[in-house]
Amino acid sequence: MSVNPEIQGKQYPSTPPYLVGREKVREFAKSVFCTDPASFDVEAARAAGHPDLIASPTFGVVIQEQTLHQLIDDEQAGVDFSRVVHGDQRFIFSRPIFAGDELTATLTVSSVKQLGGHSMVTADTEMTDASGAHVVTAISTLVVRGDE
């Protein structure tokens, strides 16, 4: 079964605000081999001019993950998770994510393409802070392999 092309342009309900915690920033930074003191030590972060700990560039995936579940769980979309391969990923920042941010994420399906029996779905997840200002957009292209 291939992905329903009619979901192109579909937007899912915004997720509840995600509060970025210091310990999560530290845990994530350690897991991606980050050594920047500003991701671990609040004094170092403030000395670097940040309001609090700075998250590693790919931290947004933690919040994006919740929106991708909306897409995968959507029966109308027809995305068979057991056949999904991550094709590419991008983060476009207005500013870095900091501990203390409350981020709301909204996924829009920007493109659905069929390519040689596979489907390629591109999903843009826009994350905004408590004031409504844009922080980062995470863009994933998922390749859904066709039947063998």
């Binding site: 500003a38 670097a48 590693s56 590419d88 990923q89 991008r90 983060f91 476009i92 920042f93």
Partner: peptide
């Protein structure tokens, strides 16, 4: 992806300058 940018983050002395990262 997350780990591959860390040598650059260390070289830049922080991640704040990163405006776009794709792979």
């Amino acid at each position: 992806m997350g780990a591959s940018v860390q040598p650059l983050v260390a070289w830049l002395a922080g991640a704040a300058q990163v405006t776009d990262y794709q792979v």
